[in-house]
Design a protein around this nucleic acid. Structure first.
Lengths: 267, 267
DNA sequence: TTCATGGTATTATAATATGATACTTGAAGC
DNA sequence: GCTTCAAGTATCATATTATAATACCATGAA
């Protein structure tokens, strides 16, 4: 094993990254053997790599339980990311204004392959934990932001995406029917925004407007999540949507580099 | 070079991490040779490691400029971190309430060695970019949060910290005089909170209250940044402080694991 | 054109990571 | 209190793997 490609690929580094990826929402604190199991590496390899990550400050180690946890370095990586993403700098102040204005949670989402990722979040109301923290990746087809962005893609791409991109059922009302999703996306093509209901959590409504790229193709979106208990569809359209769209339109991704698409190293 | 310790230390992995650390606020997009220079590795090593990081999805590569940038994976690491930090989950809802109540930017800071790191931020007003994003690490002695936490440490530790921990001058009014800082910390011991003025940016006032740990020692703090143009010292004490302290006191770090302190692998 | 810089590809070499094994610790069960 | 087991730690001979020198190929400047 270990050989993925040759000579330009450093296996040990890749294995180390596998250890980092072993941590997620349901695996927050891992023992050596947990790490070994989850990464698929043997005990010795795990031992050496985990120790290296610990010495280098990427993993904290509880001196008594001997379990590993993500260190503060993981947050510093987000810090570095923010500076490198040209969109974030000009978007955050506008998101702040928007959230103050409408008093609801607003997010900046970006396309990341066939998923979206929440890059910036400004929670205003109490809500479930995952909705308040950045870096969450969700299947694009199941989110208002994903559909709003996809709607700006050329028709052939849209069709292919709706047919092939992944969907996961989060709630009983998560849409699994791809024809249904196609309808939602095509409506967004016409309307210039997307609305979704109860996709990630029940009684949650998402509204999203795309941030147009240089060629019209959106790689980001301004998104807003509200409760179906306090907002009707009509109120959202009349009170929320205009401000969300204004915000999205005021952001010009000058030169927006592609993200999430690999440039094949073999080219 | 390369040998740091033996047999339990995987050099290639450590070198790969050095490439990741080459990115920061002023180095957001690096070419192969930039990476080589900044990491101190030779051209070949940089090539192999950077390629590996790219293939593994940790670095995006602009197909035309051939420059590398942090990928979305860097945000996902923050996501995993949040789940692993036991404080964040119970703190965020309370920070949201607090920020809605006072209408000012509130932060959750944690001690990270001799620095503090902003773990969670809820910006309410337009401010400078670095103050709106998470993961920023600052010398503890130069921040209200750092001083508030330090004030909960045993006297001997406080003294040593004020004498030895690093200070960097950010503004003309950043306090460089350690006696002055000692005064501020000792005042915080008595008051149970810390206030600082113009340490990171001019006309900015920081107020912080410690979140007590199981043994009284605080490893986190609730912090609030306001403008000296709109708030007087007295107003802050009477209007802001009580609510900040209430919030901090309502958070019980049940069992708070140590962070940022290495448990010596040789032990 | 030539030169220089930066990125890419190849290769022989040995240094490095490997993983089997043995040792240590501590908690669970009897 | 003793045994057992699982999990963490340490060691070491081996060859697999990373290395770094070099050559190659673009691109842009002089």
């Amino acid at each position: 094993m270990t050989t993925k490609q040759n000579t330009l690929f450093v296996g040990s580094l890749a294995k180390g990254l596998r250890l980092l990826r072993a941590f997620d929402e349901s695996h927050t604190e891992l023992s050596l053997s947990d790490l070994a199991h989850r990464s698929g590496l043997d005990k010795s390899a795990t031992q050496r790599l985990a120790n290296t990550l610990h010495v280098e400050g990427m993993l904290d180690k509880d001196p008594v339980t001997r379990r590993f946890r993500p260190s503060h370095a993981w947050l510093q990586m987000a810090y570095a990311y923010y500076w490198s993403d040209p969109l974030v700098g000009q978007t955050i102040p506008k998101l702040i204004s928007l959230s103050q204005e409408i008093g609801e949670t607003v997010n900046l989402a970006e396309m990341s392959g066939d998923h979206i990722i929440y890059v910036s979040r400004l929670p205003c109301k109490r809500t479930y934990f995952a909705a308040t923290i950045i870096g969450r990746r969700l299947p694009a087809l199941s989110t208002s932001a994903g559909r709003a962005m996809l709607a700006t893609f050329p028709e052939a791409e849209r069709i292919a995406a709706v047919d092939n991109w992944p969907i996961i059922q989060f709630t009983p009302s998560t849409t699994l029917d791809r024809n249904n999703i196609r309808g939602s996306v095509e409506r967004a093509v016409h309307d210039g925004f997307a609305i979704s209901t109860g996709q990630m959590i029940l009684n949650e409504i998402g509204v999203a407007a795309p941030i147009a790229g240089h060629d019209g193709r959106a790689l980001a979106a301004v998104q807003c999540s509200v409760s179906a208990h306090t907002w009707t569809h009509e109120q959202i359209i009349s009170d929320l949507l205009p401000r969300i769209q204004d915000t999205a339109n005021s952001i010009s991704p000058s030169f927006q580099a592609q993200r999430g698409f690999y440039c094949d190293p073999a080219s």
